[in-house]
Design a protein around this nucleic acid. Structure first.
Lengths: 330, 330
DNA sequence: CTGAAAGCGCTAACAG
DNA sequence: CTGTTAGCGCTTTCAG
C-alpha cells in the first residue's frame, strides 16, 4: 500500500503552489484556465485524492453524521436510516452508524463522537435518558431525535403523534364492537411506548370502558417470541380479550402465532391491530391491520433538520402523519 | 457551540508539554504518577476530548471502516452488519455504512473513501464488477468481500458454499419424491445467484432429471412481490412444478402467497424451500423450510479478516457452514 | 489570479 | 520520565 500523493506532489508537478491546487480541487476561487488545466492533469497523472483527515482538520468539520440505531436488524429502523441517507448523501455527508443494543450508553458514544469532532452531528433513534444535565448539554449541539424523543426537552425531533395513533387503533377496534381490548406494549422506558399506552387508556375511557391492569402486558422485547409470550398471558385470563392492540407489528405477529397455537382464529375469535406497517405485515397471513408510520420520511425529515442546524438555523420539530391501514387481522 | 479545548490548553493548564498530555491520553509511555494526575485533572476540568481529525492525520489512519450494503432494509444484510460491528467495536473501529442501491457505482464510493483515507478498510456485501483493472487495484488494499464474491479474484472473502447449499436444498426435495422442481432465482449478476443456479442444475442432473428453461424463473428483485410474480409464471405452465426452490426467503414467501391465491396448498400441492433463514421465516405460516446462513458469523469473520489485514497479515478466505432447516413448507 | 505562510490538533522521534 | 520539534495534508488569510 504505497502512500498516496499529497497536495504537495500535485503542486510540484504542476509547477504551482498548493494553494492553487486547493482552489482547483474545491473550485473555491477562480483559477486561470491554463493553470487549472495543468493542475488537473497533474491530479490525474498522480491519481491524487484529497485526504479526508487533512481537510477535516483544516475546516473543523468531518462531513460525517452519526446515527444511533437501537437495532440494525429491525426493519423499522433500517428504513428510517434509508430515509436519512437519501438526503445526507445528496449533501455530501456520510453516515457513521452505531448499534446501541450492545455496548455502553448510547448517548455517551454519541457525545464522544461529537466532542471528538468525529461527527458533525447526530441523529438519534435510540432512547435518551431524561437527565437534565445531559439535556442541557445537548441543547447547543447538532442533535436531532427521530421517532423516539422527550416532549419537553427542547431538542428538535421528528416523529408521529404516537398517542393519537394509538387512539386511532383502539377506536377502530371499538367501532368494530370490541369492548374487551388488550394492550401488548413494549418496554415503557421507550417514550413512544408510554405515549401509546396513554392513547390506549384514553380511548378506552372515552368509550366508558374500565382499563384493568390485567389487560395490559409489557413484552420483554419487540421480537416475535416476546409478542407470543405476552399474548399467552392475555389468553390465560378468566375473561380473555376479544381484541388486542400490539404496539409493533413484530409483537402483533408473535401474538397471532400464539393465538393460533391456542386454537383461536384471527380475526374471528380475536382481532389484532399492529403498529408500524412493516413490509412483511402486508404479506403475513392474515395480513395485518396496523398503524402505518412514514419511516423513510421520518428519516429524511430528521436529516433535513440536522442539515439546517449545521447551517446555524434552528428548525422546529416536526410531527408527521400516521395512517390506519385496514387489512385482515382486525 | 464554543470551540473545544485542544491538547495545548490542557498542557498549559497542567504545566507540562503537549507530548506528555498525549502520553497520558494514549497511555503510550510511562508518565510519573504526580504529573499524570495533574494532567488528568486538567483534562477533566477542561472537558478535553482528543480530536479525531488531528489524530487521524498524525497517525495516518482513521479507525473507520466502510461497509458497503446493497440494501439496509434487507434483514439479511442487517444481521451481517451486526456481526461485523460486534467485532470491530471491540477493536476500536467505527463503521461508516453506505447503501449501494441508490447512487453511483458502489466500488467507486468505496475506493474514494479508501484513497481519501476516510476509511482504513472496507467490507463489501455488494456486487463487484468482474473488471481486471479494478480487481488488480483492490489486491493491495484492505478489502474483504462478504457473502458476495468473485471466486478467482484473489480477494479475501467470507461466504458459504452457495452451490452446495443449493444442491442440499434441491436434494431434499428430490428425496421427498419431487421430480418437477422449479427454481426462482435472483438477478444473476449476483455471483451467489449464479452459484445457486448451478447447484440446482447439478442436483437435477445427478438425479437424471432434465432441466428445462421454463422451470427457471428470474425474479425482478428479491422482495415479496417479485417472488409472487415469478411464482405466477411457474403456475402458468402446462405442467407446473410440484416443488420450488427459491433462492431467498423473501422470494419464497412471495411465491407461497401467489400459490395460495391460486388455490394451491403449500406444501401439499406444491412444496417450497427458501434460503437464508430470516427471523421471519420461522414465524411465517407455513414456517419455511430453508437453508440457514450464519449471518452474524459471516459478518464477524469478515471483520476479523479485515482487522488482520490491517495488521499486515494476509488471512485466507473462509467458507462457513450452512444448514438445511426443515420446517413446514416442504 | 497566484504564492507564501500560518495554522488546524495530534503523534512520534530525538534529545536530554 | 519529559520537553522540543518536525511534520501529517489541507484551507485560508494576506500580499502582491
Amino acid at each position: 500500500m504505497k502512500s498516496r500523493p499529497s497536495i504537495n506532489a500535485v503542486a510540484e508537478r504542476a509547477g504551482v503552489s498548493i494553494a492553487t491546487v486547493s482552489r482547483v480541487v474545491n473550485k473555491s476561487k477562480p483559477v486561470n484556465e491554463p493553470t487549472r488545466r495543468r493542475v488537473e492533469q497533474a491530479i490525474a497523472e498522480l491519481g491524487f485524492r484529497t485526504n479526508a483527515a487533512g481537510r477535516s482538520l483544516a475546516m473543523a468539520q468531518s462531513h460525517l453524521l452519526l446515527v444511533l440505531v437501537p437495532d440494525f436488524s429491525n426493519p423499522f429502523y433500517a428504513q428510517i436510516v434509508q430515509g436519512v441517507e437519501s438526503v445526507t448523501r445528496a449533501a455530501g455527508y456520510k453516515l457513521v452508524l452505531a448499534d446501541t443494543t450492545e455496548g455502553d450508553a448510547p448517548q455517551s458514544t454519541a457525545l464522544d463522537a461529537l466532542y471528538n469532532r468525529l461527527a458533525d452531528g447526530v441523529i438519534n433513534l435510540a432512547h435518551l435518558d431524561d437527565d437534565a444535565a445531559l439535556l442541557g448539554e445537548l441543547q447547543n449541539l447538532a442533535w436531532v431525535n427521530c421517532s423516539e424523543f422527550l416532549p419537553d426537552a427542547g431538542l428538535p425531533y421528528v416523529s408521529i403523534d404516537h398517542r393519537q395513533a394509538a387512539i386511532d387503533a383502539v377506536q377502530y377496534l371499538l367501532n368494530r364492537g370490541h369492548r374487551r381490548i388488550g394492550l401488548i406494549n413494549a418496554d415503557e422506558t421507550y417514550r413512544w411506548a408510554r405515549s401509546r399506552h396513554e392513547g390506549y387508556e384514553l380511548a378506552m375511557r372515552r368509550a366508558g370502558l374500565e382499563v384493568t391492569p390485567d389487560l395490559v402486558r409489557v413484552a420483554a422485547s419487540t421480537d416475535y417470541e416476546a409478542g407470543a409470550q405476552a399474548a399467552g398471558g392475555l389468553l390465560a385470563l378468566v375473561d380473555p380479550p376479544t381484541a388486542v392492540f400490539a404496539v409493533s407489528d413484530t409483537l402483533a405477529i408473535g401474538a397471532i402465532k400464539a393465538f393460533r397455537r391456542a386454537g383461536r382464529r384471527v380475526p374471528e375469535d380475536i382481532a389484532v391491530v399492529g403498529f408500524d406497517d412493516l413490509p412483511l405485515s402486508a404479506v403475513f397471513e392474515p395480513a395485518l391491520t396496523t398503524i402505518g408510520q412514514p419511516m423513510r420520511e421520518l428519516g429524511a425529515t430528521a436529516a433535513e433538520i440536522l442539515l439546517a442546524r449545521l447551517q446555524g438555523q434552528r428548525p422546529a420539530s416536526r410531527t408527521l402523519a400516521h395512517r390506519l391501514v385496514v387489512r385482515d387481522s382486525a
